[in-house]
Simulated assay, not measured.
Amino acid sequence: MGWRILLGWLSFVAALGLAVIVTLAAQRYGFPVLAQQIILAVVTSSVAVPLIYLLRRYADNRPWSGLGLSPLPSGLPYLLLGAGFLSAMMGVALLAGTLAGWIRVVDVHLPVETLLVILINIPIAFFYEAFPEEVTFRGYLYTNLRTRFGSWLALLLQVVLFVSAPVALTAAMVAAGVGTWDLITFDYIVNLIAFGTALQLCRIFSGNLWMCIGFHLAWLEIVRFVIVPSDFALIEVEYLSPYGSYLVSLGSVIVGIAVLLGWTYRNRNRQKELRD
Rank of each mutant, 00 (worst) to 15 (best):
R275M: 09
G139F: 03
L183G: 13
P132S: 03
S46C: 07
N267M: 12
A25S: 09
W219L: 00
E129V: 15
A25Y: 13
I120C: 02
A19N: 07
V223N: 08
R268F: 02
R104V: 07
Q27C: 03
I257F: 00
L153F: 12
L80G: 09
Q36N: 11
L261A: 04
V223G: 11
I235K: 00
V22H: 01
V255A: 10
L81Y: 09
L155V: 13
L157H: 01
F232C: 05
W9K: 12
Y265F: 00
I193D: 03
T147H: 12
L217K: 04
P50T: 07
E238C: 08
L99I: 12
L6T: 11
F126G: 05
A176L: 15
N208K: 14
G30K: 08
I122T: 11
L240T: 13
T114K: 14
N269V: 14
L274N: 08
P63K: 06
L199D: 04
E129D: 14
L80D: 07
L6H: 01
V108I: 14
V228Q: 04
R4W: 09
L18A: 14
E133I: 07
W263G: 15
N121R: 14
S164G: 10
L76N: 09
V47Y: 06
I257Q: 00
T23D: 10
G2K: 11
D107W: 10
N144T: 06
V248S: 06
P166C: 11
L145I: 05
D182H: 06
